Simulated scan of single mutants.
Amino acid sequence: MNHSFITIEGNIGAGKTTLSHLLSKHYNTRLILEEFADNPFLPKFYENPGQYAFPLELFFMAERFKQLKELLQQKDMFQQITISDYLFTKCLLFAKVNLPDDEFRLYQRLFDIIHQQLIKPDILVYLHAPVKKLQANIKKRNRSYEQNIPDEYLFNIQETYTNYIKQQNITTIFVDASNADFLGNPQHLQVITEALERDYEDGQHYVTLP
């Protein structure tokens, strides 16, 4: 495989972390997982988005930057590939949905300053699942603060992601994850590994799971 830095992305509940774990084990890679549970503003945000959106997004940006900066600078002679279950640009995408215009403009200025210091992934795997599937996965993993996320919020996040991907020149494997079961169906993981082992031009490339 020609990719040394692979990022898995998708909406809340799309299966990013599960797929990242499986791919990391398959390829024996370094694994970078988002430490979202450490964000003290997350439960408060779901209770009162207007009050806690800005500190929530600032905390996420600072922690993601610190984690990626430290880990991507370290060389590992035994593990040449790195897989991450988040794209740093998700900071900006979630902020666009969660913040009012004046706060978003300030946030974007800070984002632009630090984003350029990070290595960009060679390829992005984006898991696209309908909101009904996302809600089922959210219920199944049973994090208390996620249980009342509105469908409209998930739809807005989905639209923001897909619009961003289409506007950018990132090499992206766009996966229809409507029926994804990476843990229970080995064929689904195989489709992803086979897709990652192909060569791609810039832009979006679409994959459907059997």
Rank of each mutant, 00 (worst) to 15 (best):
Asn2Ala: 05
His3Phe: 13
Ile6Asn: 01
Thr7Asp: 10
Ile8Tyr: 00
His21Asn: 13
Leu22Thr: 07
Lys25Phe: 06
Asn28Pro: 06
Leu31Met: 06
Leu31Tyr: 09
Asn39Lys: 12
Leu42Gly: 02
Phe54Asn: 07
Phe54Ile: 12
Leu58Arg: 09
Phe59Val: 08
Phe60Lys: 08
Met61Lys: 06
Glu63Arg: 14
Gln74Tyr: 10
Gln74Pro: 10
Gln79Asn: 14
Thr82Asn: 05
Ser84Arg: 01
Ser84Val: 01
Asp85Ala: 00
Tyr86Trp: 02
Ala95Met: 03
Leu99Asp: 05
Pro100Trp: 03
Glu103His: 09
Phe104Val: 11
Arg105Ala: 14
Tyr107Asp: 06
Ile113Asn: 15
Gln117Tyr: 13
Pro121Cys: 02
Pro121Ile: 03
Pro121Gly: 04
Leu124Val: 11
Val131Gln: 03
Asn137Asp: 08
Lys139Pro: 04
Asn142Lys: 13
Gln147Glu: 11
Asn148Phe: 10
Asn148Met: 11
Glu152Leu: 15
Leu154Val: 04
Asn156Ser: 11
Thr160Gln: 10
Thr160Gly: 09
Gln167Lys: 14
Gln168Gly: 04
Phe174His: 04
Val175Thr: 02
Val175Arg: 00
Asp176Lys: 00
Ser178Tyr: 08
Phe182Glu: 03
Asn185Ala: 09
Pro186Val: 09
Leu189Glu: 04
Gln190Thr: 13
Glu194Phe: 08
Glu197Gly: 03
Glu201Ile: 15
Gly203Asn: 04
Gly203Val: 03
Gln204Lys: 13
Leu209Gln: 01
